[in-house]
């Protein structure tokens, strides 16, 4: 098979590639880091925090729902602009 040799050659080169000598150290550090993260926040703390956030959200919604608008009559303010500043005053025709 003509194609065998170049394929073998490529595979040989790729097989000779060595991983980083610190790969093991890197993985161990990642595992250690993950362990520390887990031990830093115990389960009860996480649950308390989640319950606190839920309680605040619930309180907010309850307070919002408890608000009732007062039934007082609306006061409408009608201003007659023409009364304040009578444009007819400036109308020359009127003052003649």
């Amino acid at each position: 098979m003509h194609t065998e040799h170049p394929i073998d050659e490529l595979i040989r080169r790729e097989k000779e590639t060595e991983p980083n000598p610190f790969l093991v150290t890197r993985v161990m550090a990642k595992i250690e880091g993950a362990k520390k993260m887990r031990s830093r926040a115990p389960l009860w703390q996480t649950i308390t925090l989640a319950a606190g956030i839920a309680a605040v959200a619930f309180l907010g919604v309850s307070i919002g729902n408890s608000y009732v608008e007062n039934g007082t009559a609306e006061v409408a303010l009608n201003i007659n602009d023409r009364q304040i500043e009578n444009l007819g005053y400036y109308n020359l025709g009127d003052n003649e």
């Binding site: 790969l23 993985v27 990642k30």
Partner: peptide, 9 residues
Amino acid sequence: EDITQEIFI
């Protein structure tokens, strides 16, 4: 290397 790392984790 990245995949090897993920595999061992």
